[in-house]
Design a protein around this nucleic acid. Structure first.
Length: 425
RNA sequence: GGAGAGAUGGCCGAGCUGGCUGAAGGCGCUCGCCUGCUAAGCGAGUGUGGGUCGAAAGAUCCACCGAGGGUUCGAAUCCCUCUCUCUCCGCCA
């Protein structure tokens, strides 16, 4: 959520931003709602002031044993006026808030302007794409061939967009989770957390999934609970409605969770394989930082995610999302895209964003500077470090051999009980 | 699932026979004083959000004592609903 005062003072800039992001949001009502709210408040507060003053007066009269019935009768009238006005002001505030909740974050000035992903800016490319003396196959063929991925039985259990891993496949997934968590906790200074996988509406609103993206979520029937679409939600909300101490910042968390997404609106896209699942595993990095350092923190966070790809020796590139491709809550996002030879494309495997104070304002995450009065909103950041299922995809496709087997990346072998290669089973 | 207790400021904790309590007291924190360091001591200050005026500093008003309703001229204090925490019983991985 943007600051109301900011929107009021920079309305044209906000409208321009909406245009650049490709949002069709009518801001015409904003000024009128804002005006109504303030006008209503002025009258309301004056009435309340009167009520407070006269109430004091009544108390004094009663203490002296005087008769206050006339003045009480008059106040009865004022009280009902207040009640009416309160209802009307509350209604206007609700409309204003609803509108504000639909406005996306302001992109950082360094974000390239563009309508869609074709305008994303390539920042750097890492690793060498291996030449294969055979036609590389997509991961679903490799995985099914090795008996480590079983999509048809997964469909029997749960339908499309689910996967059943078995044997070395299941081990590979588990190994990657541990590998990633170990590097981020031991080498990058993150604290591991294991949050609930279901969260309430307040959490989803705090990080920006609600109210705008309800259809993307799985809701638990009969409960005020949603399955987490990313660990970003529970982990960022750890400090919801809290005042943090300056000396504790930045706070760095890493969490493994499964992620649940309805993938509404992506029918027909990536229907084969592990790329787009209703349930997938992810190791997520989350930071709470002071405003002045958040963009440096974004660089290091992105670097922390890249480190996993480097250790696994998977070729990738980093792109900066343009205004039209940027997520709702983000001010700046770097996507890490890993090379998939089976499909001959770079595919997103991590998305690292600075949300500035956008989520913090919604979620009430503040900090107090030493010696200063008052509190400030923190900046929140997060990034995948990495999406585990897609890492499996990348390993299967990049390390595939002509005979159908898959070599295990060296760094991962200790986590695979020393296994060097996955062969048919 | 049944019975009971509770939810107050950054933290702890009074108030809860309605009015002078935005809230005692303590801790923490900030500034000043004092002390050759440290500790202790003394004084002052220290919640959040919003409206109005002001260039600003600030002034002033309103709201907020888990959340939402209600009673009342007036509610942290009374009533109702919900959420969460704790204790006991039952059930269960």
């Amino acid at each position: 959520m943007l600051d109301l005062k900011f929107v009021r003072a920079n309305l044209e800039q906000v409208k321009e931003m909406l245009r650049l992001r490709g949002y069709d949001l009518d801001m015409a009502g904003f000024e009128e709602l804002d005006r109504q709210r303030r006008a209503g408040l002025a009258v309301l507060e004056e009435l309340r002031h009167k009520r407070n003053k006269v109430s004091e007066q009544i108390a004094e009269m009663k203490k002296r044993g005087e008769d206050a019935s006339a003045i009480i009768a008059e106040m009865k009238q004022v009280s009902s006026e207040i009640k009416d006005l309160e209802k009307r002001v509350a209604a206007v505030e609700r409309q204003l808030r609803d509108l504000l909740m639909l406005i996306p974050n302001m992109p950082h000035e360094s974000v390239p302007v563009g309508e869609d992903e074709s305008h994303n800016q390539e920042i750097r490319v890492w690793g060498e794409i291996k030449e294969m003396d055979f036609e590389p196959r997509p991961h679903w063929e490799i995985g099914e061939g090795l008996g480590i991925l079983d999509f048809s039985r997964a469909a029997k259990l749960s339908g499309a967009r689910f996967a059943l891993y078995r044997g070395a496949g299941a081990l590979l997934e588990r190994a990657l989770i541990n590998f990633m968590l170990d590097i981020h906790t031991k080498e990058h200074g993150y604290t591991e957390v294991l949050p609930p996988f279901m969260v309430n509406r307040a959490c989803m609103t705090g990080t920006g999934q609600l109210p705008k993206f309800e259809e993307d979520l799985f809701k638990v029937a009969g409960w005020d609970l949603y399955l987490v679409p990313t660990a970003e939600v529970p982990v960022t909300n750890i400090h919801r409605e809290e005042v943090l101490r300056e000396e504790d910042l930045p706070i760095l968390y890493v969490a493994y969770t499964p992620c649940f997404r309805s993938e509404a609106g992506s029918y027909g896209k990536d229907t084969r394989g592990l790329i787009r699942q209703h349930q997938f595993n992810k190791v997520e990095l989350v930071k709470f930082s002071k405003p002045e350092t958040s963009y440096e923190e974004l660089e290091t966070l992105t670097g922390n995610a890249e480190e996993i790809l480097r250790r696994l020796e998977l070729p990738y590139r980093v792109v900066c999302l343009c205004t039209g491709d940027l997520g709702f809550s983000a001010a700046k996002t770097y996507d890490l895209e890993v090379w998939l030879p089976g499909q001959g494309v770079y595919r997103e495997i991590s998305s690292c964003s600075n949300f500035t104070d956008f989520q913090a304002r919604r979620a009430g995450i503040r900090f107090k500077r030493k010696g200063a009065k008052g509190t400030e909103l923190v900046h929140t950041l997060n990034g995948s470090g990495l999406a585990v299922g897609r890492t499996v995809v990348a390993i299967l496709e990049n390390y595939q051999q002509a005979d159908g087997s898959v070599v295990i990346p060296k760094a991962l072998r200790p986590y695979m009980n020393g296994m060097e290669r996955i062969t048919g089973q």
